[in-house]
Design a binder for these strands. Structure first.
Lengths: 217, 217
DNA sequence: TAGATTGTTAATCGATTAACAATC
DNA sequence: TAGATTGTTAATCGATTAACAATC
């Protein structure tokens, strides 16, 4: 009932930011907020806010605005934050270890159940709450523990091969930090975090600023 | 001369991916490629590829296609990858240390010149090629060494205060991993990497899959 | 020259913004 | 009831795709 039509990617990308601002409002003790107030805080149009929320069917009340707590909880539910999500780490390098250790994910219900690495010298070592296991145990553990999300922090070369392995398991989604596009069946969702792409965009901005400076005069 | 009009954010976001595919093509020894071939590899339309490239003024040749090496280098230049970029790390926690240690950035010309942390017990410790310094030295070092990019991996609470400090320096851009929107003057570019936002999007996809499953029947 | 493929203009599609009637 | 503000329809804007003339 909650959802019928496909929601656009643009809308979904904005939901976490709404969620964040609503959390801040709760902490400030604000009980209600109008789309106009929220729009001026977030530097987006009030129209967009109302359109976005109405994709999911109207959380406000005419003449009143939105109840902050209610809106927060609804968006949380839409984002699936009312459920616990089990994860495994694949690739226990520096970045991988940092992610496992990051407590904020756990607070939101994203829990690492295991970590894997191909390096024998890392196997047995503890990171965060889990012990690093050999890659040979990967697929059986995922299926046995009904893991939802695989966090992939391995080098480019290994990523595709591992994605193929994952395709045969019950895994639902891959959070991909490897610098390649993964070939997976449609039922597996992939969310890419390409850090170097992000850094390149930054570098583009700097350079394009330089150009403007030099052209201006 | 190279650029005049504003290039849309959508185009810029695609450039790093083009760059990556062109690198792969070079490694494969491919000398030329048509927009149609590239489009089928990358799963985008050939039209979009041609439109994107023509924002910067035509890198191809009718009847021939694009020279891979040339196109690669041009895009690299547009992204500012032909220059070295100096960076400082602010916040030497797990994630920060992982970023400093990541060699791929250095290969692309992004070089960490220093790292800072407010924790006295971390000061003096070495991460990657640099030694962690106290926060008190932050602004003077940035200006003295003409640092371009600040990599911000501090908790939410500290980020805004540090952004204010950075506003008074020669810094050009902030690569922001903190979970807040930073208030900075217009001349400073901000590129956000909100990992928990990304994870929430993944969680949304999983949940919306569930919905479809349960509604289908 | 004929074939291929670009650069570019025109058509379509989707997302954002504006406007306003519905309603609390 | 009057005022406020939503939900929603209509208008605008921008981005993507299609088509084709230019040209290597």
């Amino acid at each position: 009932m909650l959802e019928e039509k496909e929601i656009s990617q643009a809308v979904i990308s904005r939901l976490p930011r709404y969620y964040r601002y609503l959390q801040d409002l709760i902490e400030e003790g604000t009980e209600r907020i109008s789309s106009r107030e929220l729009s001026s805080r977030m530097h987006v149009t009030a129209s967009q806010i109302r359109q976005d929320f109405n994709n999911f069917g109207g959380f406000g009340q005419q003449g009143y605005g939105y109840n902050v707590q209610y809106l927060h909880d609804e968006i949380g539910q839409i984002l699936g934050l009312d459920q616990e999500h089990s994860m495994v780490l694949i690739g226990a390098g520096n970045l991988g270890q940092a992610l496992v250790g990051y407590m904020n994910f756990k607070r939101r219900g994203f829990v690492f159940k295991a970590a894997f690495d191909c390096k024998p010298e890392l196997v047995g070592k503890k990171v965060g709450q889990v012990v690093i296991r050999p890659m040979s145990e990967l697929t059986t553990l995922i299926d046995r523990e009904k893991i939802e999300i695989a966090v992939l922090t391995v080098p480019k070369g290994a990523a595709v091969e591992i994605a193929n392995q994952l395709s045969g398991t019950c895994i639902r989604a891959i959070w991909n930090f490897a610098h390649v596009d993964l070939p997976v069946p449609e039922r597996i969702q992939v969310e890419n975090v390409h850090l170097s792409d992000s850094l390149m965009k930054l570098s583009y901005q700097i350079r394009s600023d330089d150009m403007n400076e030099s052209t201006k005069q």
